[in-house]
Amino acid sequence: MKQLVLAGGGHAHVQVLAAFAQQVLPGVEVTLVTPQPVQWYSGMVPGVIAGRYSAHEAQIDLAALARRAGARVVLDAVVGVRPDARQLRLASGGELAYDALSLDTGGELSRDLIDGAREHALFVRPLHAFMHLWPRLQSLAARQPGLQVVVIGGGAAGFELAVAMRHALVAQARVTLVAGNAGLLPRFPRGLRHRALAVLKSRGITVIADDAVEIEPGQLRLSGGSRLPCDAPVVALGVQPPAWLAHSGLRLAADGFIATTASLQSVSHPEVFAVGDVSCRIDAPHPRSGVYAVRAGPVLAANLRAWAAGRPYAMYRPQRRALALLSCADGTALASWGPLSARGAWVWRWKDRIDRAFVQAYRDSEPLVSLSLR
């Protein structure tokens, strides 16, 4: 039988497994490699922190979904690939042979972009590790009133985490957002940035447009030379390419991620597929956002079937504009579409409905792979 290895349990691979659960891939043995048997759905994590969801509501049982798809599960992390030998290297020291490989492992948060971060900071990714530590931060805030929490990163993750933590910790902690020299939400339209700043101001969250360059016990040093009191630094910067990619032998894009074509295949090794944050569409660059991974999922599933059957591949064409929905932790949310933006309870209800539908779809006995989300 042909060997198909799905490395990573990201949004696209969830949909691939759901498609295989509905219709088995004939003549192919499928193996899912994932460090954790459960995936946190990133769109709902700020809601979990704010107390609007339970942990269970924001998780997808990858192992159960893989069983329904007839796939074998290997609980391990990817540390390398030898594409010419068609071997995937695992953290445990083993290797997996493949005829086709699909990578949906996501990017990484570098531990070394900020001096001292590795020793002193909490990192938002991987999500399972961060969510394991979140209750400890809550407990620390309860024991130490006035705790100085500093979220580092001015993107969507940094904004949502800052307001969620402020909501959860209430008067127990002071929250500061170090947005970086680019400022808050630099890739979003001006209207949304103004609305987001108003939300942060109304919560008493200080926004600093400067880069964090060093973390020390009890303080954070900024690029401008000033120092900021900091008891709990939380790093929510953008993702970097996994370190193992640099020596993988796969052709990489200028940003260090896997260069892929419209059929989601590696430019250099067509038997390797890559989606989500680990990849870069060199013909159609787009932001690293879950919406693109979600929409690539059905195309990836179709192309893995095409690979197994020797049929032509489908093309994934990313949309020019993507809807962004950001939780404000108080029963409202922000929305942006192109230059348009809005905030309200109706936006939260919209986001809540989309997020719940995504997670619930993959808990059903027959997951709904055709969902069109954000």
Rank of each mutant, 00 (worst) to 15 (best):
D211A: 13
M165N: 02
A246G: 02
V151G: 05
L340F: 15
C280E: 13
Q319E: 14
L340H: 14
D115S: 14
I258K: 08
V73K: 08
L133P: 00
A71V: 10
A236C: 13
S268W: 07
D210A: 10
V79M: 05
K351E: 11
V48A: 05
V234E: 02
L185W: 11
L96Q: 08
R111D: 01
R72G: 00
P312G: 12
W40A: 02
G331C: 11
L200Q: 09
G238Q: 12
R320P: 01
A173R: 12
L147A: 07
I282E: 13
S54N: 04
L192I: 06
L103I: 13
I282N: 01
A50W: 07
P241N: 05
M131I: 02
A162Y: 12
G10C: 01
I152K: 06
V163R: 00
A196Q: 08
L245A: 05
L300C: 08
P189T: 11
R52N: 07
Q87H: 13
V347R: 04
L368A: 14
A63E: 15
M44D: 00
A253Y: 07
A71Q: 06
R251I: 02
I205G: 08
H286N: 12
A232F: 11
P126I: 08
S110Y: 10
P270W: 08
A55K: 13
L103W: 12
P37Y: 06
A12C: 09
L245D: 04
R111I: 01
P83H: 11
A324W: 14
V359W: 11
G297T: 06
R143Q: 15
P229G: 07
L109P: 00
V234Y: 10
I49R: 00
